[in-house]
Every structure is written in C-alpha cells, then in structure tokens.
Amino acid sequence: MSENNYFKFSNRILIAPLLGVISIWSVYWLELIFVTNFNVYGIFPRNWVGLRGVVFSPFIHGSLEHLYNNTIPLAILMASLFYFYKNVASRVLIYGILLSGLVTWIIGRPSYHIGASGLIYVLASFIFFKGVLTKYYRLIALSLMVVFVYGSLLWYIFPIKDGISWEGHLGGFLTGMLLAVLVKARTPLPKKYIWEREDYKEEEDPFLKHFDENGNFIELSDNLPEETHTSVKVNYHYKKDMPDKE
C-alpha cells in the first residue's frame, strides 16, 4: 500500500474520539442529574455480577478530576489509533476493553475498578509496540512520541499509590502489547533502496564501478558515450542573371 493512500484523512479520525469523550462525560453528567453513583457497575474482581463492569467500567469515573485526567489522553490516543491504524482501530478498541477488563477482573483487589484509564493503557501500549514492530519510520516516530508524552504512565502499572487501580493499568498495558503482536494491521511497505534488494549485485552497480577496491574514484573511458560525427551538406542556389533593361 502506498504512503499517500495509507495516511489519508477520514471523518472517523474525529468522530471516534469525539464519541468516546462525549460518552464518558454524559455518564458523569447523568450521575450529577440523578444524584446517584454508578460505581457499583464497575469491575468487581472474581464476582459474577462484577463481571458486567468489563463493559461498563470505562465509562464510569469517581470524580471530575478523574474524568478530566482521562479525557485528553483518551481523545489523543483514539485519534492516533484511527489515523495510523484505521483498518484495525475498531477491533483494537473492542478487544482492548474486553480483554483488559477480564485481566482486571482476574487479578484485581476486591474493590470496584472504574475509569477509562485501562483503555488508555491499551491504546498507548498498542501504538508503541505496533510502531516498533512495523519498522516503518512514521509509526516508529509515533511510538517515540507516545513514550515522550505518556512514558510516565508506566510507573502506575505497579502498586505505588493508594486509590489507583494499578491492576487495570497493568491489564491494559499487557492487552495492548498482546494486540500489537496478534492483530495484523496493513501498513505502508518500508522503502527499499536498490542495494537492499535480494537480486542486487554489487559488481553490476554502475555507480560502484567508478571506484576501485580502495575506494578511489576512477574514470571509466569505456562507459563514456562515443562522439558521433554528422556531416553537413550545404546546397547553394544561384540566381540567373536578370537581363538588363534598356
């Protein structure tokens, strides 16, 4: 696939992140309107009822600060996913929510685990590892950008702070890494120069023929175009003498 066809803007790049942000803010707004709390719909590990949180937990947040902290990373990473990996973006999103939620349900502490941070870890992990695996320069640059901007997130996959679902973060990180390996995404083929091809023969390279074994430049007279001589034919036209007028 050519680079121009692959990196092509579509409405999904804006619509998907916008819908994601609107959905989490709408749920929080409903909690305020009805003066209620949806935390009980979060993931409660190793409890069959708590399994419903695998689907619902990414939309539930405990406070405005919690919601705000997840909004910007979610929007940026979703936009990056749908732009650079548009052919697999929906699958990564759905599988990422389900698998990271299941991991949290299996390894989590007996408490309600809520928030979109697990999904954010899925996206950051997938984009980083997939970019490295593709070996395509633009996607590798994106991976490095994710490390630069969100590299500090790595610390929160460990239990270093109370009140944070490190299990959800770890589940998201592992899920993103797994999806990066298993999900096959169409990416632009890396550009191969002539010397990188399998059928390349160094001794037949016209450029390298201008250098000896020590790397010194040499003139190849045999390769110079032969001078062509063309004869020029000149035709003269003579006018007859006009008779004198008396």
Rank of each mutant, 00 (worst) to 15 (best):
V35Y: 12
F56Q: 11
K8L: 09
L220W: 03
K192H: 10
A89V: 01
I194K: 15
F38H: 11
P206K: 02
T36S: 15
N70Q: 14
F44Y: 15
E65W: 11
L64M: 08
I60A: 11
R46G: 02
M242L: 14
N39D: 11
G20Q: 09
S165V: 00
K209F: 00
S221P: 03
S57I: 02
L170F: 10
L144E: 06
V149K: 10
K130R: 14
I114C: 07
Y121T: 01
I164W: 05
I43W: 10
F56G: 07
H61P: 00
T187K: 06
V181I: 12
A141C: 07
I60F: 01
I15F: 10
P206S: 01
D205F: 04
L142E: 01
V49H: 12
L77N: 03
W105S: 03
I194A: 12
V149I: 15
L74E: 02
S90G: 08
K201M: 09
T187V: 13
S165P: 01
F148H: 08
G151N: 06
L174D: 00
F44H: 12
T228V: 14
L67W: 00
G62K: 09
K191D: 00
N87K: 14
L14Y: 05
P243C: 13
L74R: 05
E227N: 12
L51D: 00
L30F: 10
G176W: 04
G171H: 03
E226A: 14
L154M: 11
A89I: 01
N5D: 12
P73M: 06
I160K: 03
K245E: 08
E202N: 10
L178K: 07
R138M: 09
W48L: 14
E246C: 06
L224Q: 13
E213L: 04
I97W: 12
L51H: 00
I22V: 15
L77R: 06
G131V: 09
L98F: 11
D222Y: 10
I33R: 15
L67F: 01
L102P: 00
F148C: 11
G172S: 07
V132Y: 06
D199I: 04
S63F: 04
L30E: 09
S117N: 09
S152L: 12
R186A: 13
N216E: 14
F84V: 09
A141D: 05
Y85E: 03
L142K: 02
H113A: 08
G171S: 04
F34S: 12
Y41H: 13
P73R: 04
T230I: 14
S80Q: 07
Y137S: 15
R197V: 02
D222T: 11
N235W: 05
N4E: 12
E3P: 07
P73C: 07
Y85W: 07
L81V: 05
N69P: 01
D205Q: 08
H237Q: 15
F7W: 13
I120L: 01
S111L: 12
M145A: 15
W155N: 13
S152C: 07
I160T: 08
S90Q: 08
L220R: 15
L18W: 05
Y85V: 02
